[in-house]
Simulated scan of single mutants.
Amino acid sequence: MKGIQLREFKPTFFFLTKFVGIYLVLNLLYGFYITAYYPKPDPVTHIVSENSAALLRFIGLDVVTSDHPTRPTTALVYDGKSPVTVYEGCNGINVMIVFLAFTVAFGPIGKKMLYFLLLGFACIYLINLIRIILLFWVSRDLPHYMYFTHKYFFTAIIYVMVLILWIGWVRLSLSLNSKR
């Protein structure tokens, strides 16, 4: 068997280069965005917290939000306590960056991609709100499960959903390419 031809892996290297490049640039920009608001929470974290509190109020809980004055967090306050504090890492933006980097790196770029990205962002945002609401409940009623559910269970659920979206994008992209 002769040596592996590098040409065989050119599409893979190109995909990985685009993915890593897009991911690094967007994370760098996101880091600048977060830093601009430090030590207070950024607007996206605040909005995600407000939306989570609004959904909790919708189901009958008297929940309000409170931005911490010297930390980049927003607390969900219920009955004088804050069972959950939302940090910038909990607002879903990093997951959206990973989702966007993969989708754009895989291509093809066009109107269908834009629609798919918007659908994916909406799904990620919604699942993240549900995650925060369920973490609120776990923290309030089952605090001994909080570490596991926050660190592993809900993280896995979000990334499985992103994986399902990616599979959908790959299938859609391949079908678009085969029609050309």
Results as ranks from 00 to 15, higher is better:
residue 74 T to P: 08
residue 47 I to V: 11
residue 28 L to F: 10
residue 95 V to R: 06
residue 84 V to K: 03
residue 105 A to H: 07
residue 70 T to Y: 10
residue 82 S to V: 13
residue 53 A to S: 09
residue 36 A to H: 11
residue 29 L to M: 06
residue 19 F to S: 00
residue 47 I to K: 07
residue 65 T to V: 15
residue 94 N to K: 07
residue 67 D to S: 12
residue 63 V to H: 01
residue 115 Y to I: 12
residue 49 S to M: 06
residue 18 K to N: 02
residue 48 V to A: 15
residue 108 P to V: 04
residue 41 P to Q: 00
residue 57 R to N: 15
residue 88 E to Y: 10
residue 69 P to D: 11
residue 84 V to A: 02
residue 88 E to N: 15
residue 41 P to K: 00
residue 111 K to G: 13
residue 22 I to Q: 06
residue 18 K to Y: 01
residue 51 N to P: 04
residue 42 D to P: 03
residue 92 G to S: 12
residue 53 A to D: 09
residue 19 F to C: 01
residue 33 Y to K: 06
residue 25 V to S: 14
residue 49 S to R: 02
residue 76 L to A: 12
residue 50 E to Y: 11
residue 34 I to Q: 01
residue 53 A to N: 08
residue 44 V to Y: 03
residue 43 P to M: 12
residue 114 L to T: 10
residue 35 T to N: 14
residue 107 G to A: 13
residue 86 V to P: 12
residue 93 I to P: 04
residue 108 P to L: 08
residue 44 V to I: 14
residue 30 Y to W: 15
residue 86 V to N: 14
residue 75 A to W: 07
residue 68 H to Q: 04
residue 26 L to E: 08
residue 88 E to Q: 14
residue 61 L to G: 04
residue 20 V to E: 02
residue 94 N to W: 03
residue 49 S to L: 03
residue 23 Y to I: 01
residue 94 N to C: 04
residue 45 T to S: 11
residue 94 N to S: 09
residue 26 L to A: 15
residue 94 N to G: 06
residue 44 V to P: 01
residue 14 F to A: 06
residue 110 G to Q: 11
residue 97 I to N: 09
residue 116 F to S: 13
residue 40 K to I: 02
residue 25 V to E: 15
residue 28 L to P: 01
residue 68 H to G: 00
residue 64 V to R: 04
residue 65 T to W: 11
residue 117 L to G: 03
residue 44 V to S: 04
residue 14 F to R: 08
residue 42 D to S: 02
residue 76 L to V: 11
residue 106 F to K: 07
residue 44 V to K: 05
residue 30 Y to A: 13
residue 73 T to N: 03
residue 65 T to K: 13
residue 43 P to I: 13
residue 25 V to Y: 13
residue 52 S to P: 12
residue 36 A to I: 08
residue 45 T to Q: 09
residue 20 V to P: 01
residue 95 V to E: 07
residue 78 Y to F: 13
residue 15 F to R: 00
residue 89 G to R: 06
residue 39 P to W: 01
residue 91 N to P: 15
residue 37 Y to T: 02
residue 103 T to D: 04
residue 73 T to G: 00
residue 58 F to V: 06
